[in-house]
Every structure is written in structure tokens, then in C-alpha cells.
Design a protein around this nucleic acid. Structure first.
Lengths: 211, 211
DNA sequence: AAACATTTTAATCATTTGATTAAAAATAAT
DNA sequence: ATTATTTTTAATCAAATGATTAAAATGTTT
């Protein structure tokens, strides 16, 4: 009985195998270019099991999309809502965390953004309270205080957020192009991104005062 | 005879109708999610004409992809290679031109970048001499001089380019998300981007000195 | 061990898709 | 006006795709 439980705990269930495979393939190819056969092949299971466990390709995709977006946003929400860290510290935490996160999962940004744009996200954005999440955050308050004290020249917090996300995320999205321009292999590109962990907070700080 | 020539000049040819429709649909949906029937419908022509004029969906896509990438890069190359404009002026020109360009064609950045990433670009990147284009440019020389004079703290021109492209392009790619965060409609978002024409050169200038 | 429930399998299905075909229509050349 | 060529049309095709089906295999309960 005890022995049987241990053995079971070590085995991955079919459902989990499918999800793991779907994550890989959807992230790489997107919804439209992914065939259910691709996922079954990646999971090493029989094709019909996708419908048995998830009912449809679409439902499976919604599950993966939700988990991907939630997993990406989770740490962002934590940092933005942390009353104890300063604005500068928040920038450092976000730059550091997301450069590592995306280095490990380089397909996630463009996957999320193109599926959102293609309306394959099933109204996911409307269902996440992201407006409240940002506008009611410690970050928002801290930004307003910094503006009031003259520490930040541009009063709109959206510009601040756009700039931070732009500097962290876009290079990964444009990676093939940037590699082409700079003649970089993957290792060299990732090194460059590691440098940006230090540089981005420096740049953001300089931008705060600039008018 | 003269009358007949005039009439013909005013009519769009079938080939051009197909290309225009393909541009719209491919930009919006990408290669995988676009059906040849979608393009035929958008062009108001018979489905078989796509194969008659372009032989295959893939060949049509390659044509549109090449024109899109070339059209996007063209002004970039002009500005980067202009010996007469300063580095600061180049930043202004690029921010201004591309914010307007993408405002008119908001699907182009994510279209190009995701098709490049999905290897649907048919080796287009390898065929464009983008490395030489940037590394042999007036921009590159000017960047080196500015570094030598201590005007720019970070010596790698790739960081400079990454930052500029990031600040200009990424907000458009993330538009649905940013609209969600800020509760913006399209007009409000575009207004924000127009502000960035002035702000981005200010920010880039501040970042140049920051160490 | 038998009965019942769940999971897996391989074949098959219904629909969709890019592409082809043959004939009609339009245009160009003689 | 006739012939040749090009363009267009609607039907059809061959292959691919998400999904279904029925039976076999495996697991659980009595």
C-alpha cells in the first residue's frame, strides 16, 4: 500500500504529460500552426487522448494560455504591490527576475502578445483585473509621490511602465533580428541580456529626471 | 487608343488586388491562420487566381514578407547611413518616423517578428545584409566617436539600438495589454505614442550619459 | 474471480484546406 | 473576322486536421 503510493507519486499522469507537451508546442508555434498531432507526438501519447482529457484543442489552449499569462504576471504583481521596496528597487527586481525568466523561456513574450492580438486568448485580458492591479498598487502611489517631489519629470505612470517593459522584454522578441545585426550566437545574446540587469535600472533612473 | 490607355491605368490589376488583400490578411492573422480563401474574399476575386498568379500560398507570403520587411527597414537604413545628421538627430528621426509608420500599420511589428521567429521568413534574414548595413553605417561611427569622447557611457552599440527600438516599437506590440492597464481606447493610446516622439529622444539622451 | 469503471488505442469520420482541372470568357494578335 | 493567348470561373481533388468511435487494456470495487 505504502509502496504503491510512492510509485504513483513518481509517475507523471497522462493529463500532465499532455499539458507539458502542449506548453512547449503552443509556445513555439502558436495556436494556429500547432496541430493536435504535434502535441500528442511531443507527449508520446495517443492522439485521441487530447480530446479525452481536454475535450478540444481550443480548451487545451485556453488552459495553457491562462497558466502562461498568470505565471508571467504573478511576480510582476508581487513586485508592484510590495509596499516595502522603493521604486528603484522595484525596477531592479523586475529587470533581474524577467531577464532570467525570459532567458529560460524565450518564446513566452511573443507567444502571449501575438495570441492576445489574434484574439486567441478567449477574452483573457478582460477577465484579469490588470487595470486595478496596477492602478491600485504600491508602485502607482510611489510613482505619484515621486512626481510630486519632482523626482520624476513625466507624470504619466504608463510611460514609466512602457519604458521598463520595453527595455526588458523587447530585445527577446527581436532576438533573431538583433543576433543578425550583431552577429551573435545564443550565448553571446544571453550575455548581453545579463548585462542589462545592471544597466536597465541605471537607465531608468536617468530617464526619471529627464525633461 | 489614348482613351483605352487611360482606362487601363485607372484599373487595378488582379495581381495587385491579390497582393493588397494578402498584405492586409497576412499582417492581421499571420501565415498559419490565413487561408487562401480569406485572401480571395478580401480581394473580391476567384480563389483559383491565387495559384494562377502566385503559384502557392507560400510564394505569395514570401513576396509580402519581403516587401514588408524591406519597407520597414528602408527608412531605418537611410537614417542610420546619413553622414549629415547627428546621433541625436538620428534618434529624433527614427522615433518620429516609426511612431507614425506603426500607428498607421500597427500589425507590422508583431507580424514581422513572429514570422521571423516561426521560420516562415524563408531565410529572409540571412539574405538581407543587415549586419553590414548597421556595422558599416554612419551611426556606428558616430556611436564610436561619442564613446571615445565620453559622451556615451556604454560602449556597445547594440545596447543603444536595442534601447531605441525597444522604446519605439514595443508599446505597439503590447498595445492590447497597455490599453487594458491604462483603460485606454485607440485614440488615447495613439496620443500617448505621439507624446513619445518628443520624450524618447530626451530619454535616450539621458541614458547615453548614465553609468 | 467477476463486475464495473476508467484509460488507452487505432481506425475512421466529417470538414477544411491548398491546389488542380477543364471549360468559358476575355483579350490580343493576325 | 478568325485564331491564338491569357485570364477567369466553378467544380473537383488529395491531403490534412480536429474530432469521434468502438473495442481492447488496465484499474477499481464488490
Amino acid at each position: 500500500m505504502v509502496k504503491k503510493k510512492e510509485t504513483k507519486a513518481l509517475d507523471t499522469t497522462t493529463e500532465e504529460k499532455i499539458k507539458a507537451a502542449a506548453r512547449v508546442v503552443f509556445h513555439k508555434k502558436g495556436y494556429a500552426a500547432t496541430r493536435t498531432r504535434d502535441i500528442a507526438g511531443e507527449a508520446g501519447i495517443n492522439l485521441a487522448l487530447l480530446n479525452y482529457y481536454f475535450r478540444s484543442k481550443e480548451k487545451l489552449f485556453e488552459t495553457i494560455m491562462f497558466e502562461t499569462v498568470f505565471g508571467f504576471m504573478q511576480n510582476m504583481a508581487l513586485v508592484l504591490n510590495d509596499e516595502k521596496s522603493s521604486l528603484e528597487k522595484k525596477v531592479e527586481l523586475i529587470a533581474s527576475y524577467y531577464i532570467d525568466f525570459i532567458t529560460k523561456e524565450p518564446n513566452i513574450p511573443i507567444f502571449m502578445l501575438s495570441e492576445i492580438r489574434n484574439n486567441n486568448a478567449g477574452g483573457l485580458l478582460e477577465r484579469l483585473p490588470i487595470k486595478q492591479l496596477v492602478m491600485n498598487s504600491a508602485f502607482f502611489k510611489q510613482h505619484q509621490e515621486a512626481v510630486a517631489k519632482g523626482k520624476i519629470a513625466e507624470p504619466n505612470p504608463l510611460h514609466f511602465l512602457m519604458n521598463l517593459l520595453s527595455l526588458v522584454v523587447f530585445p527577446f522578441i527581436a532576438m533573431p533580428l538583433l543576433q543578425g545585426i550583431g552577429g551573435l550566437n545564443e550565448k553571446q545574446f544571453n550575455q548581453l541580456m545579463q548585462e542589462r540587469k545592471r544597466l536597465i535600472p541605471v537607465w531608468i533612473k536617468a530617464m526619471m529626471k529627464a525633461k
